[in-house]
C-alpha cells in the first residue's frame, strides 16, 4: 500500500539531485567574499529547511494519530522525525564545516539558525529514548505523539527567541534566506531545495513501505506458527512503532 508511485518518485529524486549537483558545480558562480566554500550553502540550507519541515510534519501526524488512533499515523510521524533527525545532524555538520571554511572556527554563536538547530536537535534526540522507555505500544504511540506535537510547536518559537537574542546584537553575517541572491544562485538553490525535499519524501516512503511489509510478514508468520498454539510475544523491546 506504500509502494505506489515509488518508482516515479525515485527517478524524479535522482534527476533533481543530479541536476542540483551539476548546477552547484558548473553553473552557480563562486561567492565574491567566501569563494568556493560558500557552495556548501546549497547542501546546508536545504538540509536544515527539510529537516524542520520533517519535524513539523511529525507533529502533524502526531495530531492525526491522537485524533484517529490509527497506528499508521504514528508510524508516519516516527519515520518523519527519525529521518529529520538524520538530516539535522547533516545540517549541523555542514554548518560547522562552513563556519570553519569561512570564519576559521568550527562553531559560531552569531548564526541563529545554527544555534537554534543545535537546540532543536537536542530536544528531538530525546524522541527515541522516550519511545524506548515505554513498553506498552499503545502508550508509546500516544506519548510519542504528544512529544511530537509539543516539539513541533517548540521549533518556531525557539527560532524566534534565538534570532531575537543573537541577531539584534550582531549584524547578520550572511543572509541565508536568499533575499538578495543573484539569479543563478537562486535557481541553483531552488533546485537543491526541491531535490532535498524529494529525497526526504522518497526515503520516508521507502521506510514506511519497508516497516509496513516487515509487520505484515511478522503477523503472517505468527499466524502460520501459532495456528493452534498459544502466542509468543516478541521478546525485544523497540523504539519503533508496531502495527
Amino acid at each position: 500500500m506504500f509502494g505506489r508511485g515509488l518508482k516515479t518518485l525515485s527517478l524524479i529524486t535522482v534527476a533533481l539531485i543530479v541536476g542540483a549537483f551539476a548546477l552547484v558545480f558548473f553553473y552557480a558562480p563562486n561567492d565574491a567574499d567566501q569563494g568556493f566554500i560558500q557552495k556548501i550553502f546549497y547542501l546546508h540550507v536545504p538540509l536544515a529547511i527539510v529537516a524542520l519541515f520533517g519535524f513539523v510534519a511529525g507533529g502533524i501526524y502526531g495530531i492525526r494519530y491522537l485524533r484517529s488512533g490509527d497506528r499508521l499515523h504514528d508510524l508516519r510521524s516516527y519515520v518523519a522525525i527519525h529521518l529529520s533527525l538524520i538530516l539535522a545532524v547533516g545540517a549541523l555538520v555542514t554548518g560547522s564545516i562552513w563556519a570553519r571554511g569561512s570564519w576559521g572556527v568550527w562553531w559560531t554563536w552569531d548564526e541563529p539558525t545554527l544555534v537554534s538547530f543545535l537546540i532543536v536537535f537536542l530536544l528531538y534526540a530525546c524522541y527515541q529514548p522516550l519511545r524506548f522507555s515505554i513498553e506498552d505500544p499503545e502508550r508509546q504511540a500516544r506519548y510519542a505523539a504528544v512529544f511530537a506535537i509539543v516539539a513541533g510547536a517548540f521549533v518556531p518559537l525557539n527560532f524566534t527567541a534565538v534570532r531575537m537574542a543573537e541577531s539584534l546584537v550582531h549584524p547578520r553575517v550572511l543572509s541565508t534566506t536568499g533575499g538578495s541572491m543573484p539569479g543563478e544562485m537562486r535557481l541553483t538553490f531552488i533546485v537543491s531545495l526541491l531535490g532535498m525535499a524529494c529525497l526526504f519524501v522518497t526515503l520516508w516512503k521507502y521506510e514506511l513501505a519497508s516497516k509496513h511489509a516487515t509487520f505484515r510478514l511478522r503477523s503472517l508468520k505468527r499466524k502460520l506458527a501459532n495456528a493452534d498454539d498459544g502466542f509468543t510475544p516478541n521478546p525485544r523491546r523497540s523504539a519503533a512503532p508496531t502495527l
Binding site: 537546540i119 532543536v120 537536542l122 530536544l123 534526540a125 530525546c126 529514548p129 522516550l130 522507555s133 515505554i134 513498553e135 502508550r139 506519548y143 512529544f147 509539543v150 516539539a151 517548540f154 518559537l157 525557539n158 524566534t160 527567541a161 534565538v162
Partner: peptide
C-alpha cells in the same frame, strides 16, 4: 510512566526551556 523518568525529565526540560 516511562522507565527512564529521572533521565528524561532533564533531557526534555532543558532544551524546551531554552527560549
Amino acid at each position: 510512566q516511562t522507565r527512564a523518568r529521572d533521565l528524561l525529565v532533564p533531557l526534555l526540560a532543558i532544551p524546551l526551556s531554552v527560549p
